[in-house]
Structures are given as C-alpha cells and as structure tokens.
C-alpha cells in the first residue's frame, strides 16, 4: 500500500512537472518576436525599371540627369517607414521618406543631378529610429 502511495506521489510529481513544462513552452511560443525588418538589397544605380535596379555603379556621369537608390526588405514585419538620406561632400542634400508594408517590400528614391553636383556622394538608408541600416558611396563626374 505504502509502495503504491509512493508510486502515485512520483507520478503526480512527474505529471505536475510535465504540465508546468508544457504550459511554459506554450507561453514562450506566444511571446516569440516576428523576424526583424531586414534590408536585403541596397544599390545605387542609373535608374529603376520594373522595380529592379538598372546599371548599378559607383561612378555616374553628370549628364545622366539622375541617380537612384534601390532598396529591398524581407521580411517587413509591420508597416514602417525608412529614410534615404543623400549627402554631397558630407553635406545633407535630400531626405526621402519611404513606407514599407509586410511581408516584403522594395522601394527606391532618386535625386536629380544638376550642374555643380559632380563630386563624391553617399546615401544612408536608416530605419524609422534613424539607425543606419546601410550606406552606399558613389561619385558623379562631369
């Protein structure tokens, strides 16, 4: 009889432990964060055609008229904003706000080239909080 009581007690302890363990696992599953916003492509190119960058390069002729920065994100866990910040010789030149939508999204910005824009450029891709996700450098030549 005593042996049976001990066996029941052991079973009860094991059962309770298993239950607690399974409950904890369920609660852990319930708080798993979705995959963070991830930048998979950041390219400076001559133009964007059919949502694809065309002629990526690091040196562009001024007479091209414009330069584009193409960015692709996967995944996009929730609707958010990103920024393309353009700098000419370390001086801010343009800041373009782009909206991203789940589950994945591609977007681009472009700047018009004018006389006097020849020189070193950079474009910073930042998230909504201003954190730099990528930086691309290029030059415009006469």
């Amino acid at each position: 009889m005593r042996m049976r009581i001990i066996a029941y007690f052991i079973l009860a302890v094991i059962g309770t432990t298993a239950l607690v363990a399974s409950t904890g696992a369920e609660s852990a599953d319930a708080t798993v964060d979705p995959a963070p916003l991830t930048l998979v492509q950041a390219i400076v190119c001559e133009q964007v055609e059919n949502l694809a960058p065309k002629n990526p390069a690091v040196v562009f002729p001024l007479d091209l008229g414009e330069v584009a920065c193409f960015t692709a994100f996967d995944p996009v866990p929730e609707e958010t904003l990103i920024y393309h910040q353009w700098y000419f010789r370390d001086e801010p030149s343009a800041r373009v706000r782009l909206r991203l939508r789940p589950p994945r999204w591609s977007s681009f910005s472009r700047i018009q080239l004018r006389p006097g824009d020849a020189g070193p450029w950079r474009v910073e891709i930042t998230d909504a909080d201003g954190k730099i996700m990528a930086l691309r450098r290029f030059s415009v030549v006469e």
């Binding site: 390069a57 690091v58 040196v59 002729p61 020849a118 070193p120 450098r137 030059s139 030549v141 006469e142």
Partner: peptide
C-alpha cells in the same frame, strides 16, 4: 574616418565602374 574615392573626369560612354 571612412575613406572615399574622389573620382573626376569624363566617364567613357561604354564603361561603368561598378565597384570600388
């Protein structure tokens, strides 16, 4: 500081500098 190349001069029409 990061170093950036300061390119100048005309770019040949049939040429792209794709990476540096």
């Amino acid at each position: 500081l990061p170093i950036q190349v300061d390119w100048v001069g005309p770019l040949p029409k049939d040429l792209r500098i794709v990476s540096v």
